[in-house]
Amino acid sequence: MTMATTQKSTGRPGRRIDLQVIGPILALIALLLIGMALNSNFLSYANITNVLARSAFIGIIAVGMTFVITAGGLDLSVGSMAAFVAGLMILVMNLLTESMGVTLPVILIGIAVALLAGLVAGVINGILITRVGIEAFIVTLGTMGIYRSLITWLADGGTLSLGFEMRELYRPVYYGGIAGVSWPIIAFVVVAVLGEIVMRHTAFGRHCAAIGSNEKVARYSSISVLKVRLATYVLLGLLVGFAVVMYVPRLGSASASTGLLWELEAIAAVIIGGTLLKGGFGRVWGTVVGVLILSLIGNILNLTDFVSPYLNGAIQGAVIILAVVLQRKGATER
């Protein structure tokens, strides 16, 4: 049903379709205007860089989440997974520093460990969901608890911190960049562009949409449903690992409170961006807009005394719902 609606709407230009497509962009522009009106520093180079760089973690994860959700799945474990992978990466790097010193190879091995750990975690989620056949919600709820406990256990209830000298060496990965654009922003852009291309112009992207739209039909069309679905979780796990590679140099630490609620922020960004929660249609650029909307709300609230800090959550909730209402209106009016 939904699939048919979407296909029709993209095929026929008109006012309602525009609203559905540009809904999230309108919300983003509105937020930018509000920000500009409330604080003159809003558009300063430092603030824009801060907002974009801090969006990168959730953003990179949310791009992966777009594929999972488009294929009709869900992953609640990404926040805990990020914390666990970050903890593991820090432990390995600290251990290697003892024998190899504060050198570049230690960082490279650390990065490899993070990517590999994310990949393996994604494979575990994917296998349990596709081969063992347990609901994605239950599997990832389970692994969410497991990874959160594991990081608490690894850190002995405290905080795992990267050695001071190692942190200084690794620091530029978050704070440095080329031509004034910091690495996390570049990484986010690259992941988003690649994600958009894969979603729109490859068989994998179309298979994801087909499976999310109607699994049976997809199977009869000789799409390897299990493999594609597994691949979405593996891709997401890998991207979690990649986000961690950007996250660790920021504060050089991981604790039980790292990555709290990232899963919900990532899912919210995906839905704000126009991807359907029940699957069948995904929009990577929309996800990017969704992530920026979420970051900007927090940023604007911090930059002003607009509302009592007690009500920050309420404002965030209201903007999320508004952003979705704005774009869904076009779809339901048909």
Partner: peptide, 19 residues
């Protein structure tokens, strides 16, 4: 509210420094 959390405190402080 920085919620006793490093990451929240980091972003909050960034924004205050801009402001």
């Amino acid at each position: 509210h920085g919620n006793w959390n490093r990451d929240t405190a980091f972003t909050l402080m960034q924004d205050w420094l801009s402001r």
